[in-house]
């Protein structure tokens, strides 16, 4: 009972603190502090509720238990991270992104192809492509190659569609200006159209970061060497080592957020001129 009251008090306390902070003059510190306090409050409430209802750690472990498991099994988590994120997701992401960028520049040269491929690309980007995971495992074997292949297909279409749209962003006036400078196709592409397309390209890249991790993890459900985050999660659920599963989920969350954050950081450097970045 006392845990239940504690949970309630924690929640109200955290929210009241945030209300007080939100009412003050907006600053960078407050913009960071408020969500952090919100997250911490949620974790503490989770901890208190697990204790209040005496939930078995086999069903839902408390955050403190997960943290202990995390600290105790960093070597397992590290090998899994390398297998899934570094080998599967990142390599697939790199291959898929480069392929999509090249394909977009090629498609862009023909108005006919652009009109034909854009609707198809848009449609395919909305499809549940993760379903091809078993086919890729069948084609490329159990190791990271099959995971990277799934990721390549998953990230290809969002980046392609966004890049093709972005390449048409430069206005007719700007292109005319390049022509008066006697700039050739490649000069116009590199100096004007690609930079103008960057906000769109990064939009596609940001969508693709999450897709890359999803693809790499799901593909491991269909067969993998005895390491990898998806492998550990599916076997961990079976063997009831739920705290390790939650530790893997924490790694996946951290990896996903960091990956997204890095891409967003690069975007900020590259598209510093865009209104959305200056605000």
């Amino acid at each position: 009972m006392s845990w239940l009251i504690l949970a309630l008090v924690l929640w109200l306390g955290g929210w009241a603190l945030n209300m007080w902070l939100a009412g003050r003059k907006e600053s960078r510190a407050i913009r960071i502090a408020v969500p952090v306090i919100f997250g911490l409050t949620l974790l503490l409430v989770w901890e208190a509720l697990v204790n209040a209802f005496g939930i078995s750690p086999v069903i839902l472990p408390a955050p403190s238990t997960v943290a202990q498991t995390f600290a105790a099994s960093t070597d397992i988590l590290w090998t899994d991270f390398q297998q899934t994120v570094v080998k599967g997701a990142l390599r697939g992401f790199a291959i898929g992104a480069i392929a999509a960028l090249i394909a977009a520049v090629l498609i862009d040269r023909s108005a006919f192809l652009t009109r034909g491929l854009l609707p198809i690309g848009n449609f395919v980007a909305a499809l549940p492509i993760v379903g091809i995971a078993p086919i890729m495992v069948n084609w490329f074997g159990f190791d990271w190659q099959s995971k990277a292949a799934v990721v390549v297909v998953m990230v290809f279409f969002p980046i392609l569609v966004n890049t093709v749209q972005g390449l048409n962003e430069a206005s007719a006036m700007q292109r005319d200006l390049m022509r008066t400078y006697a700039a050739g196709y490649w000069q116009t592409l590199l100096r004007l159209r690609l930079p103008a397309a960057m906000p769109f390209i990064f939009n596609g890249l940001k969508i693709a970061t999450t897709l890359a991790l999803i693809g790499a993890i799901v593909a491991e459900y269909f067969g993998s060497p005895t390491r990898g985050m998806g492998f550990r999660i599916s076997t961990g659920v079976g063997s009831l080592s739920i705290d390790l599963v939650w530790a893997e989920i924490a790694v996946a969350a951290l990896a996903g957020t960091a990956f997204y954050g890095i891409v967003a950081w690069i975007e900020k450097r590259v598209t510093f001129w865009h209104p959305s970045q200056r605000g």
Binding site: V130, T210, L213, I214, I217, G230, V237, A252, T257, Y260
Partner: peptide, 12 residues
Amino acid sequence: SQTIPIVALAPM
């Protein structure tokens, strides 16, 4: 929440 691969949570 959108950068977290939900599929990791699915079996859970």
